[in-house]
Structure formats: structure tokens, C-alpha cells
Design a protein around this nucleic acid. Sequence first.
RNA 1: GGGCUCGUGGCUUAGCCAGGAUAUAGCGCUGGGCUUCUAACCCAGACGUCGGGGGUUCAAAUCCCUUCGAGCCCGCCA
Length: 569
Amino acid sequence: MFLELKAQATSILKEAIQKVGFEVEDSELQFETSPHADLASRAAFRLAGIHKQNPKELASRIVSALEIPEGSYIGEVSAAGPYINFFAGRHYLERTVSAVREEKEKFGCGAPKDRILLEHTSANPNGPLHVGHIRNSIIGDTLARILRRAGYDVEVQYYVNDMGRQIAVVSWACELFELDLSRKSDAAIADVYIKANVELEKNPEYVKEIDALMEKVEVGDVRTIEQFNQAVSLAVAGIKETLLRLNVVHDKFVSESSFLKSGAVQDIVERIRATGRTKTDKGALVVDLSDYGFEKTLVIQRSNGTSLYTTRDLAYHGWKAGQADRIIDIFGADHKLISGQLRATLNSIGIKEPEVVIFEFVSLPEGSMSTRRGQFISADELFDKVTEAAFEQVETRRPETSYEFKKEVAEMVGIGAVRYDIVRVSPEKSTVFNWKEALDFEKQGAPYIQYSHARACSILEKAKEEAAWNPEEEINPSLLVEDSEIDLIKKMAMFGSIIDHGARELKPHILAIYARELADAFNQFYRFVPVIAAEDEKVRASRLALVDCARIVLANSLDTLGIGAPESM
RNA sequence: GGGCUCGUGGCUUAGCCAGGAUAUAGCGCUGGGCUUCUAACCCAGACGUCGGGGGUUCAAAUCCCUUCGAGCCCGCCA
């Protein structure tokens, strides 16, 4: 709705500026959201600079020339010094309320758009996901949800490394040590993987055994491949379970080895060779990317002829490029360089490059996390502790409820808190994990937003019981005139533009901030405006409708954040 | 040594790419509010050289240069 408001302001302002005698592009209107108006333009600054005029005077001339058409969302425009301030009118507020009531869970959705292939998580199957990995999952999953709501046809993939060196070590470890199958399968894999790495460190001779395994896989040795697969599928099964609990689902798991089998890896090597930018360096095949600004060459084939992760990834991206209009990858900061080289190489052979979203590291107070060294906090452990802490909270706050209720709410609140905590900060900030903060529900996080939703549900529930509410009833939105009602409506109206913005910039944290502000607006309304106790029947009906709208937009926001929306908590 | 990212009240953080009106919000701190739709809430208050320095501009948290600090990367690992 806000996007429409902006579009109307754009055309009104542009017309007025023309009347005053200037030509402007849309981008020169310099709109911004502001505490002083619903939409403010700094166009007078810009025009004054170009045409050597007084910006204040120009602003008031433009405002006098301005005409607001009948039925516009704009109610009023005024000049405040050099600023041109636009204020939404009643029509905008009332239209927003009816739009939410009509569109319900579809409110905020964009028109159908292109097909997107989004890859996220793709952690190596050498152990369970840890708290660093889930930053990838949460950013990726939230983006996928935002893009879907924005109208894109999104397919989400997990790229499974089932043949790299680390996996060879895993497979080797499974032969050497007994798997503890009483544990979750990915944790059992990590145990032997960590032990194997200790062995490798002690006895570097073993490296030859790993090399041998990798060569066997590359040439298609059935038994070795079978062993790799067994180890990989154990780890992947555990990872999937963890992701499911996080409310993250992938449409497809694509394995690296499939590109070797299909010959795609060989094909891509030939294509790169054909550009003439490859050469042999100590027996290895390398690509010269100096014209793309990369000083060091990129190795795409070992001297023994085997492929590398990068080579298979190139083949994977070649395959992806053929099936979608946009390719999006979510990578950790350690992949910055390699993803740049990947993009350059793809560009050099005319394959569509992925858009890469980079997030910085989550480390521990004692340093960065490492599966190999066993230095990590697994996502499962975090989920267990956080839901346990949430359970205690429900128990103190709602002692009268059933065990099942408490469990269900604790799961939604705990997992929601984890997701929100991670998604709320912009990806380029590196963070240090700390238990105290992770388990703290006092701050304005997911539980705060969920609580607002539950409050809205509770009012509606009570009204239904008293037979005082019919959701389909015609209401008169012009009765919603309190400040906190208007603020709430305006906040709801922003939802679509937040989705649009997040999708355009691939920035999920924008939505997290918005959801909190929406909850803020609802809580203020809740505090100041009585709903069920409203004396006038028509006013009560309108307010109930508004509560229902808030409930819908809060639920839509939470859903897009991948966070559960409890009706009671 | 080179490259990328970050540095905003005690702590966490928005705003920075597209420079403009009193710098966003939470935690913590001080004080207030539950016989009234769930107090996981609300209200009020204190706390800021936007890392330091220089520059561009009518105007800089935002752009440029420089410097300091933190993280990540610079493998025939992934």
C-alpha cells in the first residue's frame, strides 16, 4: 500500500515541479521516510542547487503548484523549510484496512515474477550443523520466504559435498572407528571425524590413504563410492532433522558427484580451456583471471587429473544457470575470494553468474568454530537449551496450561528466538556467540512479536465467545481515528514495501526490524485503546476488525521470518 | 605483506550503497503503571567526540584520503 502512496506522491510532485518550470527524473525526487511526514521529498534542495535558487522558496512554490487529485491516498502536502512533506489521507488508511481484510495471508505479496534458484547452508556432511552454519540457513531461508512473498518462483537447494577431501576423511574414519549409533547420526559422524583428524595429525603417512580414496572415487570405484555415500547419508539425515526443527526445508539436495558422473565437470573444464586462459602449472590446470582483478590463478584440475571442489562447483553453477532467471548463493565470509573467482570464471565462459550473499562469521569467545577440531556448539544443543529455557518461562507465566501446550509454545518461542536473534543483525556484521544472550527472552525479540500476535488472537477469541464479533461483518473504517490506531494502520501498510525492499536488496534483517516495529505499534494500540470495552457498537466492530488486521500482518511477518505465530502463549 | 568486511551511549544494534529537519531501537540503569481485552506489556528519565585525523560540500554517521583496532581470506582444502 505504501508503494502505491509513493507512486501517487511521485506523479503529483513531478507534475507540480513541471508547472514551476523544471524537468526531473523520478530518482531526483529524493523521497525518504521521515519522522516529520509519511513521505518527505528533498527535491527542492537538489533543484535549488542546480538552478541557483533558494530551496525554501522553491519548496513553497512547488507546494502551491501542487494538485491532489480526487480519491488520492495523499491527504495533505506542506512545505517545511526546504522539505516537501506528504501526509497520507483517510482514503489511504481505509484502503489499507480493507486490503488486509480482503487479502489476508496474501497481504503484502507481489505480482508473479521470475524463477530463482537459491542455494543455502550446503555445509559439509562431516558432522552436525553448528551455530555458524545456521546463520547461513536462517539468512537463506528467510530470503527464500521474502522472495516467494515478493512473487518469485523460488527453488531452494542444498549442495552436498559427497566427494571432497573432508568426506574422504569421514569415510576413512568410519572404517577405522566404530560409529556410536545410539547418538544422532550426524553427531556420531563428527565423533569419528574428529578422532580421524587427530590420527592424521599424529601420522601424516595416512594422508596417502585419503588421497587413494579420492582417486578411487574420481574414477568411479563402486565400493569406495558406496562407503562415501553411507557416511554422507548418515550426516545428511541428521542435518535434515536439525533444519526441520529450525523450520527450514530444501526443495532439492544436489550432490557434487553427480556432476562428475554426468560428465559436466569435464565439459566445463573443456569450455574454460577453450577460452585460452588456462595453462599448466606444475602439472595442474590453472585459469588466469588477472583481467578480472585476481592476481592468483585458480586451480581447476590437480596434477593427478582429479577435479576440485571449485571445478565441480563451476559445473553445478553451469547447470543451475540453465534452469532459472536468477541464481542466488548464501556463503560465509571465508568463501568471498573463491566465489569471486567462481563468478569471474563463469563470466569468462558466458554463463550467468550467481548473486552472492556473504555473511560474516559467528565465532566463540575462545575463537572460530571448527568441526574438525571439535570446537563448536551444535545447533541441536542450542535448540535444546533454548527450548528448555522457554519451557520454564511458559511454566511460570502459564502454570494452568497443559504439558502439551507448554511444549508447543516453548518450541515456537525458543526456535523463534534463535531465528530472530540471528536474522535481526545485518549479515556483514561478525558476531560472537554467547549463551547468556542466546537464552535471554527479556529483550525485544521473537517472543515479543509472538506475544503481540497472541494478544490479538486473545481479544478476537474473547469477542467471539461473547458473540460480539463477526469477522465478515461490514465495518466503518472511518471510525478508526485514535493516534495509535492510525500509527498501527500506517505500519501495516508498509509491509509490502518492506518485502519488496528486502527482496530487491537481498537483506532479510529489514523484515526483522519491521516486525518488531509492527509489534510495537500494536502494543501501543493495545495499551491505549479499549476494544471489547468500547462503548459504541460500531466503534467496537471497527476496532475488532483492526485487531484482526494486525493479527494478519503480524502472522504474515512471522511466517515470512519462518517463526511460528502462537495463538496463545 | 596484499585483499575483503566491520567499528554508532556500559553492552547489542538500525541508519551508510542513492549526503539533508532533534542519530534508531533493545538490554542494562533511575522512576512510575496490573480490581480494566495475557505485565513475555506500557509510560517517563539519564546515558552519544557515530574509532581517531584530514578533505569535499550550503550540509557528512553517510562520499574521498589517511590512520588505529577487530574478523575473514590469500592451499593441487572445502
